[in-house]
């Protein structure tokens, strides 16, 4: 049975590794999350397959023959076995917890040269603001990020709770009225990526999807400069309320 379980585990792990689970990776820590998930699969698939194997094997091997009214062996337990299946899972979850903690610390570590972008959730759209050293703020409904530049999102909400998720970054944080929450990422791949609201926020929740653009540093600077010029009136006007907001990607 052990051989059977091992074989089935190998097949199981091979199958789940063949699946393309995650969306594109677009930040420096996306890969860490995906690797962590692969490790979880590697640990857990043999457990699941093992349980399945014992069930199927027992049913086939120990099934009552027709008319067999006998009882099984009166085995009441085994202190040694029970100790093993307390200790082994304990060790596994402990190791996984430490590993997860290390990855989390790496994700959340402040980085030099960090750019702050303020994110505001509103029923049913996201607004963004780029403060700069001079104290001026550029407000926009488009999120554009420079490649390879660490960014910290300061997130809040105007009305109800929203959740700011960028699947390509593997990062998400609730936008909470009355609080400023945050997360950090370093985009490392150019392209358009979706922003999804994942906290039920009312009627238009399903349509609260936007996209962000990761561009080269120079292109970003030009874009910001253009926004700063064009939005001179916008600087003091607060978040744009004329936005059509709801957009499907």
């Amino acid at each position: 049975m052990l051989a059977l379980a091992t074989l089935a585990s190998i097949v199981g792990v091979a199958i789940v590794y063949a699946i393309d689970w995650f969306p594109t990776q677009a930040s420096t820590t996306s890969n860490d999350v995906d690797v962590l998930y692969d490790v979880l699969l590697f640990v857990s698939i043999p457990i699941f397959v093992g349980v399945m194997t014992v069930v199927v094997y027992s049913v086939m091997r120990f099934r009552a023959r027709p008319g067999d009214m006998g009882d099984g062996e009166p085995i009441h337990g085994s202190a040694r076995l029970e100790l093993i299946w307390v200790i082994v899972p304990f060790v596994i979850v402990s190791v996984l917890s430490v590993y997860a903690w290390i990855v989390l610390d790496e994700q959340e570590e402040p980085r030099a040269n960090e750019m702050v972008v303020r994110v505001t959730g509103q029923q049913f759209a996201w607004h963004f603001a780029y403060p700069d050293a001079s104290g001026k703020t550029v407000r926009t409904d488009d999120l554009v990020l420079p490649e390879h530049r660490p960014v910290k999102f300061d997130i809040t909400a105007e009305d109800v709770i929203h959740s700011f998720w960028v699947p390509a970054f593997r990062m998400k944080m609730d936008a909470v009225p009355g609080l400023t929450t945050s997360f950090r990422v370093t985009p490392n791949r150019q392209g358009n990526y979706s922003i999804v609201c994942t906290e039920l926020c009312g009627l238009g929740h399903a349509t609260m999807r936007q996209s962000l653009k990761v561009v080269p540093e120079s292109e970003f600077a030009a874009w910001l400069e253009k926004k700063r010029g064009a939005g001179a009136a916008n600087v003091s006007a607060g978040p744009s309320t004329t936005s059509t907001g709801v957009r499907s990607q």
Partner: peptide, 25 residues
Amino acid sequence: MLIAVPTGIKIFSWLATLWRGVIHL
């Protein structure tokens, strides 16, 4: 994560209960 330990005890004990039984499906 630690809740996996008592839950695991239950799963493994049921499996061990099947072992060498006379199983009626």
